[in-house]
Every structure is written in C-alpha cells, then in structure tokens.
C-alpha cells in the first residue's frame, strides 16, 4: 500500500511536535513531542488526568489541536477529519467498549471492512451485499478468537468478548498504526493475559500505541514507554528505565504502589 515504506526516513511512523490542546483555561495536552518508531509497541502511561486520552483523540482526529503538528508516515495529518485519518491507516479502539448492541460480531466486521469500499452508500441494494466481506470478517474474528460467536448479537457478549470484537474492528481497517485506549481496562486477570497475548500477536507488522494503567501489561508489551503528567511528557524510555526513574516513582509509580 505504501511503496515508500522502505525509505530510511520512515523509521519514525508517527511524529507529534509541540502538540497542545487547551479547553478554555485548562491545558490538557501541553507541548508534547512524541516520536513513535515503526513496528514498535509504544505505551503511554500517567496518572489520571495526565492527558493520555486527549492525546489519543488528537492523534486520531477526534479533537483539533490548539497548537503543534502531527505527522504520520511523512504526511501532515494535523486537523484532518477522523474518517480520513482512518483511511490513511490509523485505527483506534475506544476506552469504553463502543459496539452496536443489535449487530452481530460478523455484521460489525462487515461494517468495518465495507468502509474503504464505499459500499455503505448503496441504499438501493440489499444489505446481503455486505456478505462478500464475510470470509475476511471471519478471518479477523478468528484472529481474536471470536469466530465461534460470529453470528451472535454483541449485546449478549461478556466484557472481554466485546473488547476482542473492538480489536478485530480496529484490525479490519488493516492499519499501519493501531491506537488502543486502555485495552485491558476493567478486565479480570485471565482476560488481561489473553489480551496481552492478542495485542502481541496482532502487532506483528504494525505499530501499536496504547494507553494502560496496568503496569504488568505495559511491562510485558511495550518496547518504549512515555510517561505523561499534567499534559506534558515527564520521562520517556524503556520500561525498566522509566520504572527506575526518580520523577516517575514520585509522580506515578510510587503512589500506584507498583
């Protein structure tokens, strides 16, 4: 899809420079410089209110930055609409599971897979038209271990199962960059382990940026960790570097008792 991927300059896939977001007199994200290397798993951590979700919303276009630029794959995407960013190859999941309760898992995937084809504009045809995405949809559900529940309405699903469908939805866009907002939030220990394994598996050939409070998840998955505090970057480094950093211990890890 991107023939210039091989260029040496393509080492950094996502680059935010001086990224700022203010809401009236409150600065949620404060001059953040963030570089994400291609093919890595990059974690964003920080105490509540550190600006992680706002940063996610900026990167995926759901919020317009007050200042700064975002470059994805050598292309300035600052201020672009979320749907266009999605088409460029950035997919995101949501912190709160946001599925369509009345649709089956398979129908969700069909909806996602139909997005780049423009099939959604066909109001004169039967929705059976979407069945042509079925094989690919089943494949994606299989990847997240949900193939056996493909024809069940997701309203009946357990929490972990919904999160798995969320992941499959994000994958359906075949993104180069996957933004996962707290993939293990609210999960029991078993689901957490399964999700770690899952994220690890689907990260092959992709870049992943994720937010999570669970230090076990961060430590297991992340190649690189950025710690945010009050909207600004506090420290960045490998998990071990970050974990032993004085500032981090006082700001976050210390109080979180990890």
């Amino acid at each position: 899809m991107h023939p210039d991927d091989t260029s040496a300059a393509g080492d950094v896939i996502l680059h935010a420079k001086g990224l700022t977001k203010t809401f009236r007199d409150f600065t949620a994200v404060d001059a953040v410089d963030l570089s994400v290397k291609r093919g890595t798993i990059h974690a964003l951590v920080g105490p509540n209110g550190a600006g992680k979700t706002t940063l996610f919303n900026l990167l995926s276009g759901f919020l317009k930055p007050s200042g700064g630029t975002i470059t994805f794959d050598g292309r300035d995407i600052t201020g672009m609409q979320p749907e266009n960013i999605a088409h460029l190859g950035i997919a995101r999941s949501f912190q709160i599971t946001s599925l369509f309760e009345k649709l089956t898992a398979l129908q969700h995937l069909e909806l996602a897979l139909g997005s780049p084809t423009g099939v959604g504009f066909q109001f004169w045809r039967s929705e059976k038209r979407l069945a042509r995405f079925r094989d690919r949809a089943m494949d994606l559900l299989d990847q997240v271990g949900m193939a056996s529940l493909a024809d069940r309405e997701v309203g009946h699903f357990a929490y972990g199962q919904k999160r798995a469908v969320e992941l499959a939805l994000a994958l359906a866009l075949d993104p180069q960059l996957l933004l996962l907002d707290e993939p293990t939030a609210g999960m029991g220990i078993e689901d957490v382990e399964r999700t770690i394994e899952l994220v690890d598996r689907i990260s092959a050939g992709r870049t992943v940026v994720f937010v999570d409070h669970n230090m076990h998840v961060v430590g297991t998955l992340a190649d690189r960790v950025t710690v945010l505090q009050q909207g600004a970057i506090l420290v960045e480094g490998s998990y071990d570097e970050v974990r032993n950093d004085e500032k981090v211990i006082t700001a976050y890890l210390g109080q979180a008792n990890v």
Partner: peptide, 28 residues
Amino acid sequence: RIVHSPFGRVLSGIRDNPERVRALGYDV
C-alpha cells in the same frame, strides 16, 4: 429497502454511536 441496505446498516450505526462509525472511516 433503504433501512435494509448497506447504507441502512451504516445509518443505524451512526444512530447508535456516531464516533465509532467515524473511527471506522465513514463520513458521518
């Protein structure tokens, strides 16, 4: 027909969760 078309599927997705549909790449 409109309600039971691919368009109808997208439309009811927008009704339930516009942000989610947008994130899938649809121009809501």
